[in-house]
Nucleic acid binder design. Structure first.
Length: 804
DNA sequence: GAATGGCCCGGCTGC
DNA sequence: CGGGCCATTC
């Protein structure tokens, strides 16, 4: 039962009892409180609900103090959502002190308290992949290691694998010459990170784990008894370090509650070990086991399709997913001519859905790899369908964003050499590579950071006067920022850095649309700092740079998903844990999905690909399209692909096979018995005809130019969509208001710069104007051959041919 | 020391 | 195809 707590009146009136809200096994999982417990939660079986209610139950009924309760989620977004739901159940007071977060965020937070036990300085920073690579590049230089003989990718991969097992450099015993090199890099890398007062993602976990498992340290004892209950979501994707960690943290009470679905384990390449969840009961003989097997999310046809794909998987925890939901519409399996045809088909269906009143936020497009997003983006953009791409070139990986972040990091933690090197000459201040190398040499001679080495180097006789001067100027500048940081808010500091380093001026001087985009990104970054300040104040904390930087380092791709009315485009990996009413699963071809790496040493794991397909399918609530293309441009060349083996695993009776018109026009004049324009709803193509695997062997891949594939308007889940009034939804892009100086619509257009005009740009060549605004310093969207449409100031364009 | 162009090589998933 | 690195040139 869920009773409001006696003190305070946080719980809303009539908070429902668990039994009223959750169904049988869900209620079991939420209400049973003592000892270890594993919940095998099938896709769409309501596990988030179970965890939320369980926490609410622990807080409200069992009076567990919120600060003694740890819930680990897979993304920050999931953590935020869980908190929001809990606030509605038990009130914000209790939720504020809960520990809810990802493994990395939780460890970072714990490490902030116990940094000394980990041998770190107070303002340690978290290095991301880029930073790690930068450090390793230095290590390679120092140790004179040949990247050709020992590719950095491999060496770093090896180090990472060691760390995912909880091992650090000192634990690594090389057993051959190659491993000896790895070992040297490992040690040097670790030393550099320690010297920079930095940790990488794996360190965050390992450092905390080492404290937790240290029987001698008082910090360890504190952590081992800190939490009364530990809950872990998406447990199928934990690695061994994470498992040891939650075991250690729940050591005192053994109240370890984990929820997962071994069928959805898709991060093995990142160290996840699905056997951990499968063996949970062996490790914990007293564990209670609950299985949630009823799917509440998807139409019966979608569930059947998902089961068809996952059934052949080896080594599953036995379970039977089922549903009470209506069959709904068929799963459409659509054969396309090319990736453009595929994108056009997707765009058309989305258009129809939107015309029928479906919010774009209810629609998602999935792909196996980011590279597939480009064509989809181009087509959606030209169709004016609002979309957002999750992941890909991520916001915090953009050069200008990283630059500002690096400035902040150097101010917060001057020991961070990779950040110093990044910004020491951006904007250009005449400090070249040679000077930087001398600085690095000086630093290692003196055994100090590069920042600390600036003064001695300036006083030495190793530099010419101009270089000395430039360095001194830089040093003074940074010292100023450090002073400012003592009193100013993070946002003020960021703004002053942008202004006083000349960074903004540099971009403004460039005047290109690219530079303008960068300015917008910086604005957005400043905005995110502001947001952080608000959040910190709301949580009664003092906002500081270190706090902001930590947040920045730990954002997950899925955290970027905004609740905006836009179609979401993402990889299947990023889709985990999400759900959408309408889902397009693109690129279902052999070698694409299942993905096959060119590099045979990284041979893919078919089992994991299968689970990945299962995850993708189970995201759909009402309607699913599975698309595959005959030919696809891959890294410059055209690849002819067969339909994925997973398509052959779909039960025949739940799918409808279709082909786009482009494909029919190219390959099957006589296949199309209905004649052109007859618009048959489904065109059976029986992939089963070819071979035991039932794959369609493609025959005539000489389709015409890309265009709109078309089949009939779809019906979803019994609903039929009447052709609605067409409307155009503006893709208002990322540009916040105020940055685009819009003029009244009747303002004069710059001469000849109208839609359709042919123009020339000195970098992009000849292009056609797709769109132009009316400002005096107008911006046009131009399609240049070989480029996606670009926004460019018309003053950089020259008219080649006017529209008559 | 900076800017530009050409060449080569990699080629997924991401905290 | 595209990014990153290197060499050449100003």
């Amino acid at each position: 039962m869920l009773n409001p707590p006696s003190s305070g009146s946080q719980a809303p009136e009539g908070a429902p009892a668990i039994a009223d809200v959750l169904n049988g096994p869900q209620a079991d999982a939420a209400a049973h409180v003592d000892g270890p417990m594993v919940v095998f939660a099938g896709a769409g079986s309501g596990k988030t609900r179970v965890i939320t209610y369980r926490i609410a139950n622990l807080l409200a009924t069992h009076r567990v103090p919120p600060y003694r309760l740890l819930a680990v989620t897979f993304t920050n977004k999931a953590a935020g959502e869980m908190k929001r739901r809990l606030e509605n159940l038990v009130g914000p007071e209790l939720v504020r002190d809960l520990w809810v977060g990802t493994f990395h965020a939780t460890c970072a937070r714990l490490l902030r308290r116990h940094y000394e036990a980990a041998g770190l300085g107070k303002n340690f920073i978290v290095y991301d992949d880029d930073d790690q690579r930068a450090v390793m590049t230095r290590v390679y230089k120092d140790l004179r290691i040949d990247d050709k003989r020992h590719p950095m990718r491999q060496v770093m991969g090896r180090i990472q694998r060691e760390k995912q097992d909880g091992l650090l450099a000192a634990d690594f015993i090389p057993s051959n010459p190659i491993e000896a090199v790895v070992s040297r890099c490992f040690s040097a890398y670790e030393e550099r990170l320690m010297a920079a007062n930095a940790v990488d993602f794996d360190d965050l976990l390992i450092r905390v784990l080492r404290i937790v498992e240290d029987q001698q340290s008082s910090a360890g004892a504190e952590l081992r008894r800190k939490f009364v209950h530990v809950l872990v979501d998406e447990f199928q994707d934990v690695n061994r370090v994470q498992y040891r960690l939650v075991r250690g943290l729940s050591h005192k009470t053994h109240n370890l509650f984990v929820v997962g679905d071994d069928d959805q384990s898709i991060y093995r390449w990142r160290g996840a070990d699905v056997t951990i969840v499968r063996n949970f009961r062996k490790d914990h003989p007293d564990a209670k086991i609950v299985k949630l097997e009823q799917n509440y999310r998807s139409s019966a046809n979608v569930v059947a399709a998902a089961l068809g794909v996952i059934k052949p998987a080896a080594d599953r925890e036995p379970k039977e997913l089922w549903t009470d939901n209506v069959p709904g519409d068929h799963v459409d399996v659509v054969a396309c001519a090319s990736e453009r045809d595929e994108a056009a088909f997707v765009a058309e269906r989305i258009r129809e859905l939107m015309d029928a009143g479906v919010s774009p936020a209810e629609i998602a497009v999935f792909y196996r790899v980011h590279a597939q997003s480009r064509v989809l983006e181009e087509v959606l953009r030209s169709e004016r369908i609002p979309y957002q791409v999750i992941g890909g070139v991520r916001f915090f990986e953009r050069a200008e964003v990283k630059d500002l972040v690096s400035y902040l990091r150097v101010v917060s933690n001057p020991k961070s050499d990779v950040d110093l090197v990044r910004i020491i000459n951006v904007p250009s201040r005449k400090i070249g590579d040679t000077t930087v190398e001398k600085l690095a040499a000086m630093a290692s001679e003196l055994g100090v950071s590069m920042f600390e080495a600036i003064e001695p180097l300036v006083r030495s006789d190793r530099l010419g006067t101009p270089a000395k001067k430039a360095l001194a100027v830089f040093h003074t500048l940074m010292a100023q920022f450090t002073t400012i940081a003592d009193t100013a808010s993070p946002r003020e500091l960021a703004e002053r850095i942008l202004a006083e380093t000349g960074y903004v001026a540099m971009l403004e001087a460039q005047g290109t649309d690219e530079a303008e985009g960068r300015l917008l990104n910086l604005q957005e970054l400043v905005g995110s700092i502001e947001e952080y300040e608000r959040e910190a104040l709301a949580a009664e904390e003092v906002p500081n740079i270190a706090g902001y930087l930590e947040k920045v380092a730990l954002v997950a791709v899925t955290d970027e998903l905004k609740d905006a009315p836009r179609v979401a485009m993402m990889t299947v990996h990023a889709a985990k844990g999400l759900e959408f009413s309408f889902v397009f699963l693109t690129g279902m071809e052999e070698d694409m999905f299942p993905f096959r790496s060119q590099d045979p040493s990284r041979s893919g794991d078919i089992e994991e690909e299968r689970r990945l397909a299962y995850v993708a399918i189970t995201r759909a609530r009402l309607k699913l399209w599975i698309l595959h293309a005959e030919r696809r441009m891959v890294f410059g060349g055209t690849k002819y692909g067969m339909a994925s083996r997973f398509i052959a695993d779909l039960p025949r009776d739940v799918i409808a096979e279709k082909r786009t018109e482009v494909l029919r026009a190219s390959a099957g004049r006589f296949i199309d018995r209905d004649g052109w324009g007859a618009s048959s709803r489904s065109e059976p193509t029986r992939p089963g005809a070819a071979g035991a695997q039932g794959r369609l062997a493609w025959s005539h891949p000489q389709a015409g130019p890309a265009g709109g594939g078309a089949t009939r308007p779809v019906t979803a889940s019994g609903r039929s969509f009447e052709p609605g009034e067409r409307y155009v939804e503006r893709d208002d892009d990322a540009a916040p208001q105020g940055f685009r100086r819009r003029m009244p619509p009747d303002a004069p257009r710059p001469g000849g710069m109208v839609v359709g005009a042919k123009v020339e740009h000195k970098t992009f060549g000849i292009g056609v104007i797709l769109e132009v605004d009316n400002a005096p310093d107008a911006t046009a969207t131009v399609k240049f051959s070989g480029w996606s449409p670009k926004r460019i100031k018309v003053r950089f364009l020259e008219i080649v041919r006017e529209i008559g």
